[in-house]
Amino acid sequence: MAERITLQVSRYRPENDAEPVTQEYEIPLRKAWSVLDGLNHVKDHIDGTLSFRWSCRMGICGSCGMTVNGDPHLGCAAFLTDYAPGPVRVEPLRNFPVIRDLVVEIGDFMRKLPKVKPWLIRTDTAETGTAEAEAAEIGTAEIGTAEREFPQTPAEMDEYHRYSMCINCMLCYSACPVVGLEEDFLGPAAIAIAQRYNLDSRDQGAAERFDVLSSAAGVWDCTFVGECTTACPKGVDPAGAIQRYKLTAAMESLKAFVLPRRAR
């Protein structure tokens, strides 16, 4: 008989459960199976009511973030054989409200992310230089057309490349105690993504992002636990991005203190 492994899955069915309860499923332990494959086996063959999010099965879409044996992981990147002989505890991502079973409500992150203006900002394409004016002009603006290109050297790309690997899977939000404690904290991914644009040689929006990033709920809430970087499945290093920005923001603020009337 083939080997088997037990999944202890956190179930929350709001129509019946006041609190999440644990349900056990015994599934085959196959060499190439991830936790997500195990859950799909449960869904297809054992219990069709189990709810969880997934899409690409290959660590690109960022949908299947979950807590596996207490650690935040992509379900598709956590392999069952690494947890043998089991049991494997599967819970929803922490620090998010649970809608059902392993499905969490991500509105918090979705509202925070646009605050850092995660897109390339050019101040030289429109007279007023704001992103809004630029967006209004997008039909006629040169951005992205053959008339004007923004070339970049490999060294310039290296400056931000690792931050651009973020897939918005929110494992870092799940790993970060400050996210759980400070509901306004922008959070690791949003700041890392802001740095992805700040450090891009084609971007001119660092000044527009400054106020949000250097507010109390921005980088200063971070106490450098470092777990975001440990949790990140794409090697983004949000903790490093935040500390780097603290130094940048502190230097800017120091300038403002020393030279208060200097026009910037």
């Binding site: 250097s214 200063w220 603290k246 923001a249 800017e252 603020s253 120091l254 300038k255 403002a256 208060p260």
Partner: peptide, 8 residues
């Protein structure tokens, strides 16, 4: 841009 903040 930079306001005079105490936190930094």
């Amino acid at each position: 841009m930079a306001k005079r903040q105490i936190e930094p």
